[in-house]
């Protein structure tokens, strides 16, 4: 659990960077359980646009509002998040 919290803190730090760089209205990771999407970490939503949803891995999804330019770098972002979450699994 301690390890998990550490990794999520790492993710959170990374998401914060993305939030500032791409001026999102929220960027956060959720884990999907059946119909339920549980908040994992990130910058809480604040806008009213439907969030974009991108699969990371193992039921983890990235949600973000606005931040259009993020698309150009999305592959790298997802790769980095995958790495961070993989670290978590190994732990």
């Amino acid at each position: 659990m301690v390890k998990e919290t550490f990794i999520f803190r790492e993710c959170e730090r990374y998401l914060k960077k993305l939030h500032n760089r791409y001026s999102t209205e929220g960027i956060w990771i959720v884990k999907k359980y059946g119909r339920r999407y549980s908040f994992v970490c990130g910058i809480r939503p604040s806008g009213f646009e439907s969030p974009e949803i991108v699969k990371i891995n193992d039921g983890y999804l990235l949600f973000f509002q606005k931040g259009e330019d993020l698309h150009d770098n999305l592959d790298n972002v997802i790769l980095k998040l995958k790495e961070l979450l993989d670290e978590n699994r190994k732990g």
């Binding site: 956060w28 959720v30 119909r35 999407y37 549980s38 908040f39 994992v40 809480r44 939503p45 009213f48």
Partner: peptide, 22 residues
């Protein structure tokens, strides 16, 4: 809320700051 990740700590904070109400 629970279908776009506004759960747990996230929803607690949104409720406290009055954003969830919107």
């Amino acid at each position: 809320g629970y279908r776009c990740g506004r759960t747990g700590k996230c929803i607690m904070d949104l409720l406290r700051e009055g954003t969830e109400g919107k």
